[in-house]
Amino acid sequence: MRTVIGLASGLLFGAGLAVSGMLDPVRVRGFLDLFGVWDPTLAFVMGGAMIPMAIAWLVQRRMAAPVADADFHLPDTNPITPRLLGGSALFGIGWGLGGLCPGPALAAFAINPAAAAVFTAAMAVGFAIVWALDRPPVHA
């Protein structure tokens, strides 16, 4: 059941990215090019995505548990840490350099697999670096 939910969510998410033009790094970069030839499309995508999610959060408050799990597993909403700020700042730099964030990079495998693979492989190395740094050292 959970796998079906994951697949359905991923399918619709990827389809939405394709419909909205977000698989095109030139368009995404156009949104970030505030002082150049600005392309507002991404703002409509974010705004559109927030409508069903805002409703979902209202529904979530009235549910004791999700459909296919015993509990909701939700992150904290409060602590603003240097790690959060630094990480987000870095992410924005990479987003600006490549015109890609993780969702479009993975969905773009369907359209432009070679380029998507370059970005995604490098991104996985980034994941691995943080994962390795976060693991407590093993004492012999």
């Binding site: 969510s9 998410f13 939405g16 909205s20 995508v45 559109g48 927030m50 069903p52 999700p66 939700l74």
Partner: peptide
């Protein structure tokens, strides 16, 4: 339209799998 699809996808994940 794509945004509404993405938001619905995220809603399925939240309400379906928590």
């Amino acid at each position: 339209i794509g945004g509404l699809m993405i938001g619905t996808a995220a809603a399925i994940m939240l309400l379906g799998a928590g």
